[in-house]
């Protein structure tokens, strides 16, 4: 896809993001201000980039999974498991490198489990990943022994709250992960093969695509992204909370992918659009808090905004609106014709 085609693909998402940002600025005028404080940029837009990191990371993996006509409900639980494993390793004195490696490996294993259920056993993705979604928090609790495991490792905390070259580390994490995944799937045939599996599994298998390995891979990428998100969340609060780390984030990630315009029925996908979708969701979340609404309105406002965005992006709505417009134009032309005759007569 060339630059112009890519821009046209993500134009609705960019417009929506701009509209949300303008809306938030109307309620909270100092929203767009960014200043340099100490070692990093500070301000609400930077905050959106940082706080949106877990959902953005999950959305990268989720986009690939949804492109294969699957869904991964377990990412929130995987975040909790990986955060717990890393915190366990750090508090055990094994060092940061081992902790991160263990957490990433755990994410890959969780993804492998999901992929095994879907690709080898042929269980529906929504049911297969539901298993780990329910069981995962129990596993995380086993690792943390039911406590909130806190640690004071400066390196680990840097992952969640540090800054590099002026930007928070979590923001770097999702931007780099997005670029890397985008390059891998778009500069090789991998993205095309993923789309083909999502459009028609049987046909692509007959055409020689190794769909089993491909499905295993996308679920493992999803698990890996969830592991990074779990590390960030654990590092941010310097503790692993098995019950609340990543709670309901799988829903936000799926929402980001849907706002990004990727069909839940598989096929064509855009990681960039999903990432913009994640930023839209985080802008709504941050905006509601900044605008000073009573917190009990948060969910209602979020629901209404999400419904509005999805309604505006619905292809069927475009067709309906186009039909109404053309009918009105025809009526206008019919009404305008006699007038022009009159003008000609004068």
């Amino acid at each position: 896809m060339n630059g112009f085609g890519l821009l046209r693909r993500v134009a609705p998402q960019l417009l929506t993001l701009a509209a949300v940002l303008v809306l938030v600025t109307l309620f909270f005028p100092s929203f767009p201000s960014v200043s340099f404080g100490g070692d990093r940029l500070v301000g609400s837009p930077i905050d959106v980039l940082k706080r949106g990191a877990p959902v953005a990371l999950l959305a990268i993996g989720m986009t690939l999974v949804i492109a294969t006509r699957g869904i991964d409900l377990s990412v929130g639980a995987i975040m909790a498991i990986c955060g717990a494993v890393a915190a366990f390793a750090v508090t055990g004195g094994w060092g940061l490198g081992v902790a991160v490696a263990l957490a990433l490996a755990t994410g890959l294993i969780c993804g492998l489990w999901n992929g095994f259920l879907v690709a080898v056993l042929g269980i529906q993705p929504i049911v297969a990943t539901l298993i780990l979604m329910v069981a995962g928090r129990g596993i995380a609790q086993l690792v943390t022994e039911g406590k909130i495991l806190t640690f004071s490792d400066a390196g680990f905390a840097y992952l969640g709250s540090g800054a590099f070259l002026g930007l928070p580390v979590p923001a770097w994490a999702w931007i780099l992960a997005g670029i890397l995944t985008g390059l891998v799937v778009r500069r090789t045939a991998l993205g095309l093969l993923i789309e083909s599996v999502g459009v028609n599994l049987r046909a692509s298998r007959l055409a020689g695509v190794n769909s089993t390995v491909l499905l295993l891979t996308v679920y493992m990428i999803s698990g890996l992204c969830a592991a990074v998100a779990g590390l960030i969340v654990a590092g941010d609060i310097k503790g692993a909370d098995a019950n609340n780390a990543g709670l309901w984030l799988e829903l936000d990630a799926i929402l980001a992918v849907a706002i990004g315009g990727t069909s839940l029925l598989g096929g064509r996908f855009s990681i960039l659009a999903s990432l913009i979708g994640a930023m839209i969701i985080q802008s709504i979340n941050t905006g509601i808090l900044l605008a000073g609404f009573p917190p009990e309105f948060n969910l209602v406002i979020k629901a209404i905004l999400v419904l509005l965005i999805l309604t505006l992006q619905s292809p069927r709505l475009g067709a309906v609106a186009a039909g109404l417009l053309s009918r009105r134009r025809r009526a206008d032309e019919a009404g305008a014709a006699p007038r022009s005759v009159q003008e000609a007569g004068q």
């Binding site: 009990e296 629901a303 999400v306 292809p315």
Partner: peptide, 24 residues
């Protein structure tokens, strides 16, 4: 049905709405 939106997403928004409305 009318707007051909995915059921997962519509009912997700409905979940937020129903969960949020009583408290507001």
């Amino acid at each position: 049905h009318g707007l051909a939106m995915p059921a997962f997403i519509v009912t997700l928004a409905g979940m937020f709405l129903a969960r949020g409305s009583p408290t507001s």
